[in-house]
Structure formats: structure tokens, C-alpha cells
Write a protein that binds this DNA or RNA. Structure first.
Lengths: 157, 157
DNA sequence: CTTTAATATTTTAAGCTTGAAGTAAAATTG
DNA sequence: CAATTTTACTTCAAGCTTAAAATATTAAAG
């Protein structure tokens, strides 16, 4: 594994290589995300953050506390408040009181929300399959191994 | 390259593998970005978008048109207007008229902006080096190859 | 108990982001 | 050369995002 584009000197310091890797990672990830965001809006009339919240709720039929949603999605608390407010107004989610703790709420998908999410999730998976169609099973496995290694080196991830 | 975590069946359809890969890519990239954003704010009192614009300008001493900045950074036109407004107010960037085309402006870093960017860029590279310290030269090269392959399969990127 | 600390969430202010609509200037067409 | 289209940019409305401050409640300490 010593091949490299002709314009990158082998004597490049490792810090430059790491920087180059990060910029590539950011660009690649951003391209895919941009395409997903575009389709979410155009074809489903929703946004990635909403989809992410619904996705988290769909995996927890018993409901999730607000703080648990923000922890899982790695976004701030206040952020989730606004998104759940909207989903609630639309009858997609609802807040259920937690017996014995009047501070907290459990957020759940309504039946309507479950139905909508199932549709959206199917479309989402099909889009990813389409966008990543150029990667075969070996490509996917190889990339996944690299990412797991990288992710392991990011402490506390 | 057939190893895989024990909880993922080898019979998983490729679409599921691709979805899993995307989620991993998104999470990894997001973790790094989050850490960078945090340090930008805490240690430099700036933001990633501002840094990105300054970075684009730093590479083009002769200046860039607004539309060229937004094209390179893959963000909307209106977005760049606001960021360049701020940089201009702060004396970091300036708009220069384009002779013969009164619609367009060339945006440049001021000497002050160049100085600030040089400092920020040094810190930024050091942070990446630190965050990715767990990857040696071979890791970086291998990951880069995978990313280039992936990026090649995303048409028009 | 009652003061203090921790937890759960919401509100707020500031800034980023987009897509669409608006303005102005330049290029093209007939 | 007048009408139309394209290009460059800004403004706008709506929504996402964060960190910090504010509320409310529960738990812990003395």
C-alpha cells in the first residue's frame, strides 16, 4: 500500500497526510449528505434532522427521554426540543409523562408516525443503495474496516 | 477481508451493508467535525464556515468571486454573502470591483486576514494531527485509497 | 428537615443553511 | 438596437444548531 497520486511527495509529513485525509473524508461525507438532504426535501418533504429523530424513536417503541435522543444523535438538548415540538404538532410524535419524575418526558412515535417513518426508511435505504451502488460487497467491507479502525482511535466515541 | 463483527450475518443484503457503512461514515465524520467546531470556538473564537471561507481565499491571492467561493465550498450563494459581510466588517476580507463587470466582486483577504488565517491554519492542522494521531502512515494511506475509490463512484463529485 | 447539588428540559441569542424571490448588469437574439 | 435570457449577487423566510441561562424537579448532605 505505498501507491499515491504523482503530485503528493512521499516525503510529506504525516500531519499533512492526516489533514489531506480529513479534508477528503469531509468532502465525501458531505457530498452524500447533500444528496440525501436534497431528496428528503424534494421527494419526502422532510429534513435529515427530522428523519434522524424519527429513526431514533422508531428503534425505541417504549419511548425515549429528550436527553437520550440528543445523546444518541449527538446534538444539543435545545435542538431536540424544537424538532420534537414540530413532530408533535404534526401528530407524528407525542410526549408521555414519566411516572415518578415530573421533569422528564418519554417521546414516542404515534401510529401515524410509525407508518410515515416506515415509508421514509424504505426510501432512505434505497437511496443509499443507489448512491453507493459503485461499491461492491468487498469494497463496503474494506471501507467499513477502515472506518471502524479510525473510529476506534477517536477516544470516547 | 471477510472478517466481520459476530452480530452481522454474512447473508445480510448488500443494501443493508451499504446503509450500515453510510451511518458509520456519517458518525465518524461528524465526531471529528464536532471536535473541530468546539476547538474553533473555544480556542480561536471563530467557526468552521468562517475558517473554510478564509481558507478558500487564502489559496487565491488574486481574489475569488462570490459564486466561486460558494461553488468550491458547496454551499449556497446567499450563505456566502452573510459570511463575507462579517469578514469584511471585521477587516479580514474585502470586496474589490471587477473591471468591466459591475455585477461581480472579487473577495480577497486583507493583510490582517492573511495573518489571522496563517495562525488559524496552523492550529487547525495541529488539531487534525492530534485527533488522527491513532492512524499511522499506512492507516492514512489505506483509508485515503478507500475514500478515493468511494468518491470516484459518486458521479460528478 | 433544609440546604445544596444534580438532573431534565426549555428558552434565548447568535449564527449557519437552504431555496426562492428580487435586483442589477451583461450577453444574446431577432 | 430593443427584447429576452443569462449571470452575479443580495434579500428573505423558514428551519437547524449551539452554548448559555432559566425553570423545575429530584436527590444528596449535613
Amino acid at each position: 500500500m505505498t501507491s499515491r497520486p504523482a503530485d503528493i511527495p512521499s516525503t510529506e509529513p504525516i500531519s499533512k497526510s492526516r489533514l489531506r485525509l480529513w479534508l477528503k473524508l469531509l468532502k465525501t461525507s458531505g457530498s452524500i449528505e447533500e444528496e440525501l438532504r436534497r431528496r428528503m426535501r424534494a421527494e419526502l418533504g422532510t429534513t435529515l434532522p427530522r428523519f434522524d429523530v424519527m429513526s431514533a424513536l422508531a428503534r425505541a417503541p417504549e419511548g425515549l427521554k429528550m436527553s437520550e435522543i440528543s445523546r444518541r444523535l449527538r446534538v444539543s438538548n435545545g435542538n431536540i426540543t424544537g424538532i420534537v415540538d414540530k413532530l408533535t404538532e404534526e401528530g407524528i410524535a407525542l410526549r408521555v409523562a414519566v411516572p415518578g419524575d415530573r421533569r422528564a418526558n418519554l417521546v414516542r412515535l404515534t401510529p401515524k408516525g410509525q407508518k410515515i417513518f416506515a415509508e421514509h426508511a424504505g426510501r432512505h435505504e434505497a437511496w443509499i443503495d443507489e448512491i453507493l451502488a459503485g461499491l461492491n460487497a468487498d469494497d463496503v467491507a474494506g471501507m467499513m474496516l477502515r472506518l471502524e479502525h479510525l473510529s476506534d482511535t477517536l477516544e470516547g466515541d
